[in-house]
Design a protein around this nucleic acid. Structure first.
Length: 262
DNA sequence: CGTAGACCCTGGAAGC
DNA sequence: TGCTTCCAGGGTCTAC
């Protein structure tokens, strides 16, 4: 479940491994992602140098001398740096060759994407422009549960189920609270909690849960799972048993502490 | 426009 | 043991 901190960790690893290298070839896996990467985007890349690796929300943006290739890891996507020329794995969906190294995009569930247009995205959570005023404006008049809006990439970009759960736990706000009914002080607390948890998780290079669903492109696990206070736990860091909000919010499990979150 | 829910996918866990 | 069912959740699409 790569979210902003995991994607940022991938970005940094790609930058240090591949920046300045020339893309020599690409190969689309069989089968590839369930949405096929558009050939017209890929075919202009060979011969061009990778001169930038950026991130926007959960999207990676590879800059090739004015041409941009977007990558989204979906749920189970994983980017690995390997020696070029090795055999594909069973879940290799796209390979980008850079001389002696290659970027391999593995994705068991095939929800990942490459070469897609970016949808409208809200502010980056760590951008100073994303503050309590901005969040309050986005929530004003909205009846949807706050958890659903935190997962809505148009409200704020890069947050998924792990860090939405954590931010609400830290802010002491129940996931089903009507967004527009949060008090001003609660919105400010939530905004601060989002920034805090995202910044810490980036610093700790993302969360690697027990299923090891996230490893960076060099195969290293992250450490942010150690600071999770609610996600994936039966007992919160507060010492109280967590509840799973039913019915689900936005189709996702929503753990919260009935005592500490109001 | 806002909201809720179905759908895309498949490995692994749980149930029988 | 081996089969079936359920679950995980990124994003997108449709119905209301």
């Amino acid at each position: 479940m790569p979210e902003l901190p995991e994607v940022e960790t991938v970005r940094r690893a790609l930058e240090s491994a591949l920046l300045g290298r020339v893309l020599t070839a690409y190969r689309v896996g069989k089968p590839t992602f369930y949405r096929r990467p558009p050939e017209r985007v890929l075919k202009v890349l060979p011969g061009r140098a990778l001169d930038g690796v950026r991130r926007r929300g959960k999207y990676l943006l590879l800059d090739f001398a004015g041409e941009e290739l977007s990558l989204h890891l979906g749920m189970s996507g994983r980017i690995v740096i390997v020696p070029d020329g090795g055999p594909d794995g069973p879940h290799t969906r796209l390979t980008l060759s850079f001389g002696e190294r290659a970027l391999r995009f593995e994705d068991a569930r095939r929800f990942g994407r490459a070469g897609c247009r970016l949808p409208p995205l809200g502010p980056e959570p760590l951008d100073p422009a994303f503050d309590a005023d901005a969040l309050a404006a986005a929530l004003r008049g909205r009846a949807a549960p706050i958890k659903a809006l935190l997962l809505d990439q148009r409200v704020v970009a890069g947050i998924g189920n792990i860090y939405a759960t954590e931010a609400l736990f830290r802010a002491g706000i129940r996931p089903r609270r009507a967004s527009g009914r949060l008090r001003r002080e609660e919105v400010a607390r939530l905004c601060a909690a989002i920034k805090e948890v995202i910044a810490q998780a980036v610093e700790l290079r993302g969360s690697t849960l027990e299923d090891e669903s996230f490893l960076d492109p060099e195969g290293r696990p992250g450490l942010a799972q150690k600071m999770l206070r609610a996600y994936g736990r039966e007992t919160g860091a507060c010492g109280h048993p967590l509840k799973d909000a039913r019915p689900r919010i936005g189709g996702r499990t929503s753990l919260y502490c009935p005592l500490c979150q109001c």
